[in-house]
């Protein structure tokens, strides 16, 4: 069981095994450590803060071979407000 964090339109995912009671703490720590990125825009490096709205998370209670088969959405923005 744990939190699976994804980013809209991205392949990157993060997996944090944890209890339900730890979800908020996991999200808050993750956002602190992965809060910005540097991307190329018209050949120029641009650093941007990643909006919370680009982050989605689910609490996974059962994994299949390669993806969750039982999970519940986590209201990220509400939890971190």
């Amino acid at each position: 069981m744990g939190v699976l964090i994804s980013y809209l339109g991205r392949k990157t995912q993060f997996w944090y095994p944890c209890q339900r009671s730890e979800i908020r703490e996991v999200l808050a720590n993750h956002v602190q450590n992965w809060k910005q990125e540097t991307v190329l825009v018209d050949g120029q490096e641009v650093t941007r803060i990643i909006p919370i709205t680009e982050l989605t998370a689910v609490y996974v209670t059962k994994w299949g071979s390669d993806q969750p088969v039982e999970s519940e959405p986590i209201p990220v923005a509400d939890l971190l407000r």
Binding site: L4, T12, Q13, F14, W15, Y16, P17, Q67
Partner: peptide
Amino acid sequence: NGPALVYTGTGNAGALEL
């Protein structure tokens, strides 16, 4: 940089895990 936590893509579907 700040604390450099090390993640590896060894989770399910290559997810990064701490």
